[in-house]
Nucleic acid binder design. Structure first.
Ligand SMILES: [Mn+2]
Ligand SMILES: [Mn+2]
Ligand SMILES: [Zn+2]
Ligand SMILES: [Zn+2]
Lengths: 135, 135
DNA sequence: AAAATTAATGCAACTTAGTTGCATTTACAA
DNA sequence: TTGTAAATGCAACTAAGTTGCATTAATTTT
């Protein structure tokens, strides 16, 4: 956990305090974080533009990857084994329609190829009710 | 083609000229249409608010379904065998990162269930280069 | 250590997709 | 024809995300 965090910092240009703050949030749980949530939670510590830019840098470094949910909001989740040059972690996500939480799933979902088309990435979002909201 | 179009109109409350215009656009190709594109193309024929509202009604009627692409734009595509009460057509989509076009795919991609979670829908987006842009 | 360079940040203004309220018009039924 | 409910237009609004530019902080060079 702590080790991978250090690896993360190695990938980006400057390991500032604010960058560390962002990375630590992603280390805590195996959940994605929405930018709206992050800018709110960090509003006293840094400007929202800074949040956007740090997330952008983290993505380019292969630390996190981004996607949009069906409400049009942008989310980020930590990558597993990606780098600045190789973004290969395309795990599926699960969003609870009750609480909005997005979990990162470790399952592999095989996708068939399509003739005459080049598939570069696959985004899979399962939607339903999460463990907490189901009971 | 023409028959299914008539079925479509039966599902919604009033078959106005503008509603027919929208439905006809979806009948033409097996491609999804972005709301931004639609409001632009129809800007001389109807207000953008009307476009949004008609699409909303068409979705509630089971004529089309909506989703968001990774650029945060909302898209609509025609449903296959859905109704106001049963939205079961969850076909995957393919978006070309060159031209932006989104195709509806007829393939079935099996998704495993997750313990302690209720999966209600699955959204799958393949990204890459389409037939036209690949050559 | 001081100066020079480069990256990171804050702030305000901006862009734009999508929504809302309300007045008006159109469609349909009584 | 009259009454009622749905559909539409228009303007104002909301909010996520972006951009430009001045300032600050970190790193490198001398
Ligand atoms: Mn990744
Ligand atoms: Mn459907
Ligand atoms: Zn939940
Ligand atoms: Zn293309």
């Amino acid at each position: 956990m702590q080790l991978s965090c250090i690896n993360f910092i190695d990938m980006i240009r400057r390991k500032t305090k604010k960058v560390e703050t962002l990375i630590n949030l992603f280390e805590q749980k195996n959940e994605a974080l929405s930018v709206v949530d992050l800018t709110n939670r960090l509003s006293t510590q840094m400007n929202k533009t800074t949040v956007y830019r740090i997330l952008d840098r983290l993505e380019q470094s292969g630390v996190v990857h981004s996607f949009n949910d069906s409400n049009g909001l942008r989310w980020y989740a930590k990558c597993n084994g990606c780098s600045a040059t190789k973004h290969t972690d395309t795990h599926p996500h699960f969003q609870c329609t009750d609480c909005g939480t997005i979990e990162c799933l470790s399952m592999e979902i095989p996708v068939p190829s399509i003739s005459n088309r080049q598939i570069n990435s696959v985004e899979i979002m399962l939607k339903g009710t999460c463990e907490r909201c189901i009971s």
